[in-house]
Amino acid sequence: MKGFFALFFAQFRILLRNRLDLFLTLGFPLVFVLLFGFIFAAPEGPVRLGAVFISSREPLLQVLSEFPEISLKEFANVQDLESALARRQLDFGLVWDGESLLFLFERSRVQDNPTFHGYARRIARALELRLAGVDAPIQAEKVHVGKLPAATWFHYIVPGLMAMAILQAGVLAAAGRLAAMRELRILRRLLATPVSGWAMLLGVGLVRMLSGFLSASFTFLFASFLFRVEFLVKPGWLLFYALVSALGAMGLGAGLSILVRKPGNAAAAGMILVQAMLFLSGINIPLEFLPVGLQLLAKALPAYYMAQGIRAALGVVEGVPANFWAGLGFGAFGILSLLLFGRLLLRPD
């Protein structure tokens, strides 16, 4: 036990002294939260519409007053409008000659244009109704039924980042830290001491696990305090998913360092695995956006369920049994891997 504590504190000091590790634990969450927060959590600005009215502007001004999210800027001629639009000073443009509507869009805004096309169609429909002097016979009311009263894409990203922080720390604990210790011949010396193999494994693993938890906690705290993002936290579930994610990831890392013998390569392989999971698990890119084949692959990856589990634990989505069972299975896999490969992980060369 004494050996375990000595190793644990030594590893903890190493973590604090290693600038890269410290940056990955503290700096990364802050940078990610700041970036995604400013992009996704900030209140959306108005949709900027530029218009040229060749004919009477009244009917269109009345129509546009039904769209409070649109801010209007008038232009004297079509050339000025096109020039402002091309330089992205506007979101889309409109020319009304009393008979027909011409909508202008900036070519390179390939992702935003479908939304602006939608606005254009709605404006055209509203104008037809206005000119006929009738109201829309059916009113559609959009009702948000998510668990959180105020949800943005940022609410979905934060738990995903937390899951990734834990997974990354877990995978790199075995594939990175132990491999580095082997490369630097520290492991060989430690094995010559009376400290047991398990004390060594736990000493290194727990510090890395702790760094993952710290990183996830900082992500949560930065998001909550800097952007006033509110979550409905269920502490028990959060702890469950954090633990099983860390255990499972350590198991993955252990498996990797068995497969990839060269120490430096094991860490690289671990990083590759983490990056692949980050892209394919619906953490950064919504799962619905991926082709069906990749969606199936995503659902075969533990990162997807861990991210969904943490989302449910923070009240962003409804918890489903699949997340729980996947979490339990992942945690069990981690324990089993460590039991099976623990001895191999501690090989001196």
């Binding site: 992205r88 011409l102 202008l104 070519r107 390179s108 104008l127 037809e128 109704l129 006929a132």
Partner: peptide, 21 residues
């Protein structure tokens, strides 16, 4: 529905065009 009932006086022609580049 309104068109079917003859409430809409006319259909406004709409053109969509891209600028830039």
């Amino acid at each position: 529905l309104l068109q079917g009932e003859g409430f809409l006086s006319r259909k406004i022609p709409v053109e969509m065009r891209e600028v830039g580049g």
